[in-house]
Design a binder for these strands. Structure first.
Lengths: 221, 221
DNA sequence: ATTTCCCTTGCAGATATCTGTAAGGTCACT
DNA sequence: AGTGACCTTACAGATATCTGCAAGGGAAAT
């Protein structure tokens, strides 16, 4: 079994639950946890330079902001930074996100090794995931149906991400920057403009407010 | 200290973390946890009829749906049902929700005894909350600024009409014209601007898209 | 190789949004 | 009558949105 595993998760209670479980059932001897992406990264780096690298990273995707100034703000950024540092690092994502499109993207883009969806059986699944990944296999929570996403939603995925970002209050310029940072293409402000305008036509919306209201009410986002 | 406490929380990892912490630091002897509201309610009821009632309920607000058919689906419903059964039951809510308006409503409407916001210090805060509530005081996570919302913010009809119009895709100029035509005062574009900006502050929204998304999701409009 | 189609991107101008400042009006209180 | 709190309104400047137009790239068809 793994000897060194790092947990990055900003909810103290969840953090605690994961550590206890992995310590008790898998007997992993070195199992620190971090509440901030930056600290997690520094710990990975320090361990690597001392030639005692971590073997596995278990991370959430979303980290709440607070007063602390942060460089890495999401699990995605942490994964990218960690992999740049240590390409062979195994990664399991543990998040509430249950959208198969998003999960699929993590496997394709970030080459993660496992995905566990937080929920009623999250801990048991996480233990299974660690064991699978240890044996060089991948793991996905049974609740996530990856087949659904392979073709059907592929077309809409990009538009959906735009809508979600708009609903979170990002401007199109910010969305463009975010996409660039996450290596999502296309990502120019102009193209995002065009896509949104196209959705106006498709859904009969007058402007962005109207479109977002429609999409939320129709439970598209 | 409390002798019987029930935890209702659908995330297994969080659930686990909370139990461990309360068991270790506060030495609460009877500390079961439930993943479903219905089961939590049944346990409360069974204990009450056997004249060994729980003293405290710690519950989340949102519970993921799955294949299991459920009667109680949210923490709010659980609290209402539990209080109907056992009016003296103390209640601490433990959720990611950090909107002071919502938290305030829980204290006023549901008479909860404590509110702990999940996050980096969630567990420590929860221990404090349990201690405070044991001594018949209330507890609120320091991250939540209740003062903002003390002048309890009920959406005025006027603000509601603005939001509804925006969600229908009208511009502020059009809303102003519509109000004038319908003899609704005030009706200047400037005032409508101001009202919307005020709502940004009150609801923590970045811009109109964000505000509308929040309002629809919170079923205000 | 050329054409055609579609998508991406940049740019520009007209509108719309957001944020301040300032002027005036109403109302309660002194 | 005067004061202060609060609301409405107008206006101005910085940003953001929306809509065209045009240039260029890639893929498929001819």
């Amino acid at each position: 079994m793994f000897k060194k595993v790092l947990i990055a998760e900003d909810f103290q209670d969840t953090n605690q639950g994961i550590s206890e479980m992995l310590r008790d059932t898998l007997h992993i001897p070195v199992l620190p946890d971090e509440l901030y992406c930056d600290k997690a990264y520094n710990r990975l780096k320090y361990a690597a330079t001392k030639n005692e690298p971590f073997e596995l990273l278990i991370t959430d995707l979303f980290f709440k902001g607070d007063h602390v100034q942060r460089r890495l703000t999401t699990g995605l950024e942490l994964i990218a930074a960690a992999r740049a540092l240590q390409p062979n690092l195994k990664v399991i994502v543990n998040s509430m996100e249950d959208n198969p499109v998003t999960v699929n993207a993590l496997f394709k883009e970030e080459k993660i090794n496992g995905y566990v969806c937080k929920g009623r059986h999250g801990l048991i699944e996480l233990v299974n995931a660690v064991q699978e990944v240890y044996h060089n296999r991948t793991y996905v929570s049974p609740g996530i149906d990856l087949n659904v996403s392979n073709n059907v939603f592929e077309l809409e995925e990009f538009d959906l991400m735009i809508l979600q970002s708009l609903a979170e209050g990002l401007t199109k310029k910010e969305i463009s920057e975010k996409f660039k940072k996450e290596h999502i293409t296309p990502n120019s402000e102009s193209t995002i403009d065009k896509r949104v305008s196209k959705m106006f036509d498709e859904f009969g919306a007058k402007n962005t407010n109207h479109l977002i209201a429609k999409m939320i009410r129709e439970e598209k986002i």
